[in-house]
Design a protein around this nucleic acid. Structure first.
Lengths: 363, 363
DNA sequence: CTGAAAGCGCTAACAC
DNA sequence: GTGTTAGCGCTTTCAG
């Protein structure tokens, strides 16, 4: 007996409470201008009848859809899921975003879209038309995609840009959120400097991620500040283990190789670990390693990696909050929200073995 | 300029193509009784205008919602996300389910509900009323929850029960899918027996998961068949590392301890590994270990664990297919769909060290 | 502060 | 084959 119609509707509640549908609607939406006694009576009916509004109907009548769309890069996300390397980016988004949505009666829907594809626009339009989301959460590398940002602005849909500083002028509806990449990168580098390292290598992320630049900048600025040369100590990677291996080889083959390496993500750091092992370099004895992201493999690596933890859950949670607030008419923050990343100390960092034998001034 | 109304509706398309809305609707839904030339003309308008139907409106008019609800256990799922141990159950569900949904124009929405809570019913009713999903995917331990199953049957919503054999009579709309637990467990045990093990311990999962029993049964039957005693070789666990430790201790403290242990999930197996290390038992030299699930930590453990891989993505994908088929009126399969789990051989299993010194007949 | 009327975008049920 | 009519459940006007 597939009764496809709503079991109990606003009409039933109205009849039960002896009021108009309108009043019930007001109670549901916590609108003012309802006498406490009315509100109580209606609420009682709602509870007793087990009434829950249909978001489809709410959406139809021009109100909210209570849906927030989270957009991730299709190719990379699927690759991560299939590789089963334990990256929990999506899980952390769910943890932060879904739970925050639930608190407000919203729901989060995940969608994968191709960045490098002419279809982005079509895909996004389709998703918006189909779902009519109240907000959209963009993740790298979509966060700075002008096509996506432009479309969202045009539609007037509030959206969060995780991992984006919002470009130059910012956009009408975009709320940029960053995870302190530059600062964290600089802190991590400083940590290595404090340990006594002077030759600190850096493995960059791919250029289509803005945060690749931030991470590099943080490293470079800490090196500069300590008056250490960064010359030749940066190698290009693309987040893949293979690229990490190539970069590690490049750095360790240097005439004066680094005693520490900061890798732009965990996978590349693991590759560094592997290369070190092949070369019989002890970690952290001969080589210290720090990675970005702190996905589960960082803790499970051998040795466990000191890593910069990305507060993905917290950031997503804030993104949801800000979108919902924007819906309610709150004005957007005028500078990017910055949720700081913390350095998690584990076993892959130590003072350089040859600390005293090297040409230098400090300890 | 927040235009909350649909940008281009079926009306626009109808006007543009010079036909009635109904005809457009028929084209969208690929219904018969439309002349090819009409269908082409309408399709042309749809494409040119960039029209996409609103699922809210489709739902409102009594048709599908194109939404499939996936229900997971709240407490356990959140604990997994927070522990950051790399369990990718949810990711694999997304991989299998989301992609399959997308193929058919559906969307999957995740929702967490408390099993051990009086509110299950209320929560589920709320989700159904709000979303009007076309189908629901149940995961353990919800799959066999009579309250949930009963409610879904009553509402006439097709649903998949992952990890359930469907109980006695089965239910009207329930489609049980299992992942070959018994067989896999028996195979894994047999693998150890083939290796020469005779004392094979088993660490059970919690009783509120049916699959705990299946896994135990598989082990027990393989032991029986090989005429090996299982007496005292099973220890209770609850999937947590702590419980795995206690169970490992219990088994290894036996007067005649096992030379191999089959743990009902990866976490408990890791605990076994830890206990072994503390006791200076080499794995796999002195003790072989096999785990269930094969989440990413299994491969990352030291040594990497031989594990029984749960085909979560494939199962979820099939679940979605079957739900959509059921919607289209296909009759449900009359026995549980069984997607076999495969044993992934890694470095935690080997013949027992003392193989020749033990009382026995074989090699 | 409360109610009545109109309509959102779409499809089921009928006519033609 | 195609068009017309009515209505899904809710919220927006706008009256009172």
């Amino acid at each position: 007996m597939a009764r496809r119609r709503q079991a109990v509707t606003i009409k039933h509640v109205a009849a039960d409470a002896g009021v108009s549908m309108q009043t019930v609607s007001r109670v549901i939406n916590k609108e003012p201008n309802v006498r406490p006694e009315m509100q109580a009576r209606v609420q009682e009916s709602i509870d007793r009848l087990g009434y829950h509004p249909s978001i489809a109907a709410q959406r139809m009548s021009g109100s909210r859809s209570y849906l927030i769309l989270a957009l991730n890069d299709r190719e990379r996300t699927i690759a991560e899921w299939q590789s089963r390397q334990g990256s929990d980016w999506v899980d952390q988004m769910l943890l932060g975003g879904m739970l925050k949505c639930a608190e407000h009666g919203y729901r989060m829907i995940f969608e994968l879209v191709d960045t490098h594809n002419d279809h982005v626009e079509r895909e996004l339009k389709a998703a918006i038309a189909a779902l009519q989301p109240d907000g959209v959460i963009l993740t790298p590398p979509h966060s700075d995609n002008p096509l996506i940002v432009g479309l969202l602005d045009e539609y007037g849909i509030p959206f969060a840009q995780i991992g984006s500083s919002g470009g130059e002028g910012g956009s009408a509806g975009g709320i940029p959120l960053i995870m302190g990449d530059t600062q964290a990168s600089s802190n991590a580098t400083q940590h290595l400097i404090d340990l006594g390292h002077e030759r600190i290598g850096f493995i960059k992320g791919p250029d289509d991620y803005v945060l690749s630049r931030w991470r590099e900048n943080g490293w470079r600025s800490a090196m500069d500040e300590a008056e250490l040369s960064a010359e030749g100590l940066s190698a290009q990677g693309d987040f893949s283990p293979a690229s990490g291996r190539i970069a590690a080889l490049q750095l360790l083959d240097l005439a004066d190789p680094p005693t520490a390496i900061l890798a732009s993500n965990d996978h590349m750091a693991i590759s560094v670990l592997e290369v070190a092992q092949e070369r019989e370099l002890a970690v952290p004895g001969d080589l210290s390693v720090i990675s970005f992201d702190n996905t589960p493999i960082a803790a499970l690596a051998n040795p466990p990696l000191t890593a910069i933890d990305q507060p993905v859950a917290e950031t997503t949670s804030r993104a949801v909050e800000l979108i919902i607030a924007a819906k309610r008419g709150a004005k957007r923050p005028d500078s990017p929200i910055d949720i700081p990343s913390k350095l998690v100390l584990r076993a892959s960092t130590a003072p350089p073995a040859s600390a005293t034998t090297r040409r230098k001034s400090g300890t």
